[in-house]
């Protein structure tokens, strides 16, 4: 399934100014692919680059969309997904204005409302961030 712009609001409760996913290119039980283009009005942009917090939030929202997808597919409301833990994260470069972050996320493990995922984010084919994240889901 593909989602763009405000269609993504069906999948997560975050709203502007902290929506950090523009496109959900694919969403399955095992993986998710998303993208974000860095624009001047992004609250995580400073001196023409997207700061680490923005990159991590983009990955966290991808993870929250992924973790909440089964509930969405079954007709439920978007659930609040909270970051519980980050591990083995690397931020190798900071994207610039007009760059597009392309993120691929794989499910690593899942148990009792906790989802562990691994994400890789690239810009123009070069990896800029990678790491593991645990997301907790709560009913909104």
């Amino acid at each position: 399934m593909m989602f763009r712009g405000e269609q993504i609001y069906q999948l997560m409760p975050q709203r502007p100014p902290i929506v950090m996913v523009d496109v959900v290119q694919s969403l399955t039980d095992k993986s998710a692919d998303t993208a974000l283009t860095v624009k001047t009005d992004n609250i995580f942009v400073e001196n023409g680059v997207l700061r680490e917090a923005g990159m991590i939030e983009h990955i966290a929202q991808t993870a929250a969309i992924f973790a909440g997808y089964p509930a969405f597919r079954d007709g439920g409301q978007p659930r609040l997904g909270y970051i519980g833990e980050l591990r083995k994260f690397k931020i190798t470069a900071l994207p610039r204005l007009a760059d597009t972050l392309v993120t691929h996320l794989d499910l690593v493990a899942e148990a009792a409302g906790v989802t562990l995922v691994e994400a890789h984010t690239c810009v123009a084919g070069n990896c800029v961030a990678e790491g593991q994240m645990k997301v907790f889901l709560k009913d909104s």
């Binding site: 680490e52 917090a53 923005g54 991590i56 519980g84 833990e85 980050l86 591990r87 083995k88 994260f89």
Partner: peptide, 29 residues
């Protein structure tokens, strides 16, 4: 992530220079 950024900004004050995250071994919330 905003709380993590707040830590980085406090660390930048301690260092006397702007810092950014290169890698995270672990962050628990």
């Amino acid at each position: 992530v905003c709380n993590m950024q707040m830590i980085v900004e406090c660390a930048s004050l301690v260092a006397g220079a702007g810092l950014r995250i290169g890698s995270i071994k672990q962050c628990r919330l």
